[in-house]
Design a protein around this nucleic acid. Structure first.
Lengths: 125, 125
DNA sequence: AATGGTTTTTAGACTCATTCTAAATTAATT
DNA sequence: AATTAATTTAGAATGAGTCTAAAAACCATT
């Protein structure tokens, strides 16, 4: 665990946002001005392999990172792009039965309209 | 519906594979040698907006396309990369309840080890 | 079947996230 | 301290996807 890797992990754990690699790079640079982009990418891979973080793909152009490796759902507002976590009771068992096998992990993204954007619907401005 | 768009749709519907844009481009070119990559990308967007196909993101470097717009799960073998479809009975209702709202669509990917790769595990060669 | 207007296609340039590379640095081990 | 292995760095390279501007196809109306 180098100091670069520690800072990257701290950045990811410092809030509940799902940051992109670029955002993590910017935040890490505030503490380690010399850190390189490649180091961020390298360590994001290492940290995911160590199951300390989880990569979430396909929400935006760039991948994002979740500070928890434990699988859970992501609900994404189609209007504002905001991402929230949610859990599904008994979901693991349900998947195992559906696919007829154990599994290693899953990724679930639900696209919806969040309350704030729903309230704004149809209004001007 | 131009002839380019028709060919692209036929290519996607011609098998149960989840092709990348590049693969679709190559296959479409066999029938329309003059077709351009940009046309493929444009039409994939149009076809998804029309709910005739569905984009699946994050399985590999490039996006893939499903010949059905109806949401369903994808089970992806971590060893060979093979993708299969599967369905979850009553899943829609389960999600609605979990997120406390209606939703527009979802994407579910499960990573596992397929039977063929499981059988190969630990063997040499 | 010519007209004018809109939509689509095309080729290639462009963007941008991510990966690769090779040299330099750091950490770990003897 | 010397040796080896792992990590970091800067920048080049890759490659999926987007953008652009000009040409072509399509459409509705005379």
């Amino acid at each position: 665990m180098t100091k670069q890797r520690a800072v990257i992990l701290e950045v990811i754990r410092s809030d509940m946002c799902h940051h992109t690699a670029e955002e993590i790079f910017t935040l890490a640079k505030e503490r380690l001005p010399g850190i390189s982009r490649a180091t961020v990418y390298n360590n994001l891979k290492v940290l995911e392999a160590e199951k300390l973080i989880r990569r979430i793909t396909g929400d935006s152009l760039s991948d994002r990172y979740d500070n928890s490796y434990i699988p859970h759902g992501h609900m994404i507002c189609e209007e504002c792009g905001g991402v929230k976590d949610f859990n599904l009771e008994g979901f693991d068992k349900m998947i195992s039965e559906a696919i007829g096998s154990d599994f290693n992990s899953y990724e679930l993204k639900v696209r919806y309209l969040c309350d704030a954007c729903k309230a704004r619907e149809g209004k001007c401005g």
